[in-house]
Nucleic acid binder design. Structure first.
Length: 543
RNA sequence: GGCCCCGUGGUCAAGCGGUUAAGACAUCGCCCUUUCACGGCGGAGACAUGGGUUCGAUUCCCGUCGGGGUCACCA
């Protein structure tokens, strides 16, 4: 009885790995084309850090004419959520991420390297595990949780490293005959790596973000296949990324410490080790300290949060790109109209220490993104958002023709568009006075009867058809007639000569019209409101 | 605790042996403007720390401190 017999007892029906090598031939891509992937668990939740990785993945693939695919890592039943894949696909789609290949819905995959759901790749993993067992590079381990606990305790008491390695790897040298017998008796077991690594030897790992990192070799007999027959992450990573021909593995920095294991596995199979880009996490400032942004504590950890808040997807992605390569900011300034995907991202220019997520900066980016939209785009985005999250706003926006005029104020005919909107959830408050006449008035400097007098006088001269210059001259006339300074400048030179100036007069009209002291250009507002509405609003103040 | 990563203004960050140590956001002031949002100009604000190496260290080396990750039949 030898390893081959053992392998056959464990996986009698497994195919040879050559079978799969034949089936998943190298991709027919140009030199230098990168194959990348996003590989979440089907929890239905996309973390902001996941989006961040997607941006990197997609940039890499796009820039090189490669492929970006979506693989689902569902080898842990506890992490599964009903419809989890679907939700991830949808969440990504909202950010304009449609992978070239991989899962496209809960159960559908697209591409020649599937299945793209790990739970459906069981026999593939078994074939590869069998290969290792045959060669004595892996073995069945029958340790019970109690046994493992006991080993750990002994190690701790002796001040040693914990884990299954060297002499502590209890079933590593179990005679093949005995192992076979135990298996035939139906004993539960896992498959462990028979590590040839040595802790006193060093291994150099190349990381595209950090450069070279040195570790002791892996000497742990890590679990490869769990008792339920499904692989553990480390094993699935090696098998899948090899078979799917991933060229660069973009993953979180929490994986750095397990790369020696992964490299050992790739070497055991004789496979080429992919490039690793282990990227820093996104942090959150909490109580003066920085910590990883957390799914449980921080709503902004979920990518859906931004959608709900009405922050444009483009803005979120651009903000994230700023963190990935800070040179993006300068590029964007020089190329305001290009698509973000035209920017050449470089892994080597990426920061290595995690960035604190800055909502204020995001909103600034967003403000600039929205400023580039025309009225129709703003309308479409706002309306779409409103239909999902703000019924009242949605109702307001039903009349598209009018809404377009409202959003066109200081935008459509202006080469310096307004920048007073950073998310769709601000729209309602931003334009409400264009839909409802104000009921409260705070005129600031000129009040009471004086204010009424201003309105009365203005009403006498107001003409909807005036051009802007004439329109403003008339306000100046009113100011002068009522004893206010015609020009702000002359008022400022001798403030004691007048009770106020044309700006104060304008404020009265503005407040009467909108209920606010701060608004966009008043001439445009009045043009959009229309003659009748303007007169109505103004005269109602005089009553 | 072992192993590993990281440490430039409040935040994101350029820098890669010699710089007045960029820029963006935030902040403050001024200007522009009938108000605001913009825009323009300017101010304040940083190389964690101690040793080396060097003619010279933010930059290279070591220690210290601080932060983070990882040590699962979770990913």
């Amino acid at each position: 009885m030898d390893y081959k017999d053992l392998a056959n007892v464990i996986y009698p029906d497994a195919k040879s790995i050559e079978y799969y090598e034949e089936m998943y031939k190298p991709r027919n891509l140009a030199q230098g084309a990168e194959v990348t992937r996003f590989a979440p668990s089907p929890t239905g939740f996309v973390h902001i850090g996941g989006l961040y990785q997607c941006i990197i993945n997609r940039a890499l693939a796009k820039q090189t004419g490669g492929v970006f695919y979506l693989r689902i890592e569902d080898t842990d039943q506890k992490r599964k959520l009903e419809n989890g894949v679907e939700q991830i696909v949808q969440a990504l789609a909202k950010f304009d991420f449609v992978p070239d290949e991989g899962m496209i819905s809960e159960n559908e995959g697209k591409g020649d390297y599937g299945p793209y759901k790990q739970s459906q790749r069981r026999e593939i993993y078994h074939a590869f595990a069998k290969y290792l067992i045959e060669r004595g590079l892996a073995y069945p381990c029958f340790a019970t949780p109690e046994e493992i606990e006991e080993i750990r305790k002994k190690q701790e008491a002796a001040g040693l490293r914990t884990g299954f390695y060297g002499v502590w790897a209890k079933y590593r040298n179990l005679p093949v005959d005995e192992a076979i017998e135990r298996i035939k008796n139906g004993e539960s077991f896992v498959i462990r790596l028979r590590s040839n690594g040595r802790e006193d030897r060093r291994i150099k790992v190349k990381d595209a973000v950090r450069g070279h990192i040195e570790f002791p070799e892996n000497d742990q007999d890590a679990v490869l296949i769990k008792a339920d027959g499904l692989p553990v992450y480390h094993f699935a990573h090696v098998v899948d990324d090899h078979l799917m021909h991933t060229t660069t593995v973009v993953r979180g920095e929490e994986w750095i410490s397990s790369t020696p294991l992964h490299i050992e596995l790739f070497n055991d199979f004789g496979f080429k080790v992919p490039k690793y880009a282990q990227v820093p996490s996104i942090l959150k400032e909490d109580d003066g300290k920085k910590r990883k942004i957390s799914k449980r504590k921080d709503p902004e950890a979920a990518v859906d949060y931004y959608h709900k808040e009405g922050i444009p997807s483009d803005a979120v992605c651009e903000y994230l790109m700023n963190i990935i390569n800070s040179s993006f900011e300068g590029w964007r300034k020089g190329n305001p109209d290009k698509k973000m995907t035209e920017f050449k991202m470089e892994l080597s220019k990426m920061g290595v220490s995690g960035a604190v997520f800055d909502m204020v900066k995001l909103l600034d980016v967003s403000k600039n993104v929205i400023a580039k939209y025309n009225a129709k785009q703003v309308y479409d985005f706002a309306y779409t958002w409103a239909k999902e999250y703000d019924e009242e706003l949605a109702k307001m926006l039903e009349n598209e023709e009018y809404a377009l005029k409202v959003f066109g104020i200081e935008r459509e005919n202006s080469k310096k568009p307004r920048k007073d909107l950073s998310k769709w959830s601000e729209v309602k408050n931003n334009i409400i006075y264009m839909y409802e006449a104000p009921t409260e008035f705070d005129f600031d400097k000129i009040t009471g009867e004086d204010a009424k007098k201003v309105i009365e006088e203005y009403l006498k001269v107001y003409n909807f058809d005036d051009d802007k210059q004439t329109w403003f001259d008339k306000i100046k006339d009113v100011a002068e007639k009522l004893g206010y300074a015609r020009e702000v400048k002359e008022y400022k030179q001798n403030p004691d000569n007048w009770p106020g100036h044309v700006g104060d007069v304008s404020t009265v009209i503005r407040v009467a019209l909108t209920g606010r002291r701060n608004t966009p250009d008043m001439y445009e507002i009045m043009q959009v409101l229309g003659k009748e509405e303007v007169v109505n609003r103004l005269s109602s103040v005089c009553k």
